Simulated assay, not measured.
Amino acid sequence: MVSKVTTVAFQGIEAVPVDVQVHVGPGMVAFNVVGLPDKAVAESRERVRAALSASGLALPAKRVTVNLAPADLPKEGSHYDLPIALGVMAAIGAIPAEFLTDFVVLGELGLDGTLAPVTGVLPAAMGANALGKGLICPQSSGGEAAWADADMTILAPGSLIQLANHFKGTQVLSRPVARLHGNAGNLPDLAEVKGQESARRALEIAAAGGHNLLMTGPPGSGKSMLASRLPSILPPLTPRELLEVSMIASLAGELGEGKLTDRRPFRAPHHSASMAALVGGGLRAKPGEVSLAHNGVLFLDELPEFSPQVLDSLRQPLESGEAVIARANHRVTYPARIQLVAAMNPCRCGYLGDEALACGRAPKCALDYQGKISGPLY
């Protein structure tokens, strides 16, 4: 028998439908997963086997083949565990297959049958809503899924047994509630700054016009302190911006407890950050700091200490508002409309112009230090 369960693969912030096709038939006893799975997906067969056993179900002594279609699309991540498990349960008759046709499913299984949170639940919920389907996701991720649409059906069980009981009618799963993070009182606020009239005025102008900003001054003059308070005078996120920011944060696994926030993001990577960390990339082409700061502020402290190649990689996102990550087998685009704020010392010692504290190489050290930043970025 063949059963089908719908899940998603992620291309940027877009959720692409994937059919999990499970066939249980005669042949040598085996459990195979095909369709370009990565290591995490290939290992799902062991988690599924253990989770089904812990839930009181044993795999039959038959050949189980799982195909992830389309087969030429790379599949990455652990969120394929739950759709594979439900597909196996439907194929052996443990649950009616027709119950799964109206849902997109994702979730990671523990060996005891519990469901662990996964990344990308909000984009998956948006994709499921576009398909006219509901969503099945882990309980801890249900809060972010509820933001996709107030009318769509969302099931957020804590374990495989709870979901099976819901389909049997012996347990009812309530719809998760969409929640926002409250604005904590300890967030940096520009109202706390006393004095610094010129710097405050520069921040106000930059906030009003969405301008990029470079602050230059000696150590301890308050550059980092002022930059961290810029989001406090930026307007709240619009509903559309809120969803865009939250979808990126969801893919990066940075939505705590499934709660969204209407405060604009503020990202301040260390100057040792690599190009992949800043603009995105890596084996799974994850969003970088420039995308995580989308519709917010990217703050680069000690600007000349960043690698020149890393700084130049920001030129394209700043011009187009997108971070494009090209690989041999796929191409991913993440939104990256940011307000760039940077801070730097006037020279390496930081005290250019102060005869008492400046080093003996001044002013040549200032030219060398500032020369690390390319002209186009200026």
Rank of each mutant, 00 (worst) to 15 (best):
S228K: 14
V310I: 11
N329E: 13
V245C: 09
S250F: 07
G282H: 12
I325T: 02
G220I: 01
E254M: 15
V332Y: 02
L278W: 05
L255C: 11
S228F: 00
P317Q: 02
N212V: 12
R327C: 09
A285W: 00
V297M: 08
N212H: 15
R229W: 12
E319A: 14
R284L: 13
S291I: 05
E322D: 02
A328R: 13
E322I: 00
T261S: 15
G210T: 08
D301K: 08
S307C: 10
H330K: 13
I233R: 10
R327A: 04
E241R: 07
Q339I: 05
L300A: 07
A276T: 13
P335Q: 04
E305M: 14
L255F: 05
G258C: 10
Y334P: 07
R263H: 07
P308M: 01
S221D: 07
L243V: 11
V324L: 10
A293N: 12
E319I: 03
V310M: 10
S250Y: 08
D262R: 15
G280S: 08
A249L: 13
E322N: 07
P287Y: 14
P287Q: 14
L292P: 09
L243Q: 00
A252L: 10
P231R: 04
A249K: 13
P287V: 13
L303M: 14
A268W: 00
A268G: 01
F266S: 01
P335L: 03
L230Y: 01
A277T: 10
N329I: 08
L251M: 14
Q316C: 01
M215W: 06
L226Y: 10
D312N: 14
N295Q: 15
I248D: 05
H271W: 15
A249H: 15
V245N: 03
A326W: 00
L292V: 12
V341W: 04
L230A: 01
P236H: 08
R263W: 00
G281F: 07
R284A: 15
N212S: 15
S232V: 11
L230Q: 04
L243N: 00
V310S: 10
S232A: 12
A326S: 15
L260N: 05
D301H: 10
P269I: 10
V341Y: 05
A273I: 13
P235Q: 10
V245A: 08
H330Y: 11
L243D: 00
H211N: 13
P308F: 04
V324Q: 01
G296F: 05
D301S: 09
P317I: 04
G222S: 08
E289R: 03
P269L: 08
A323N: 04
P308A: 01
A249D: 09
L303Q: 05
I233L: 14
I338D: 01
S313P: 04
D301A: 11
K223A: 04
L242T: 11
N329K: 14
S291N: 12
L230H: 02
Q309F: 06
I338T: 06
G210W: 01
A336I: 04
S291D: 06
E302Y: 12
V310H: 07
L292Y: 09
S228Q: 14
S320F: 00
A227S: 13
M215S: 08
D312L: 03
S313L: 04
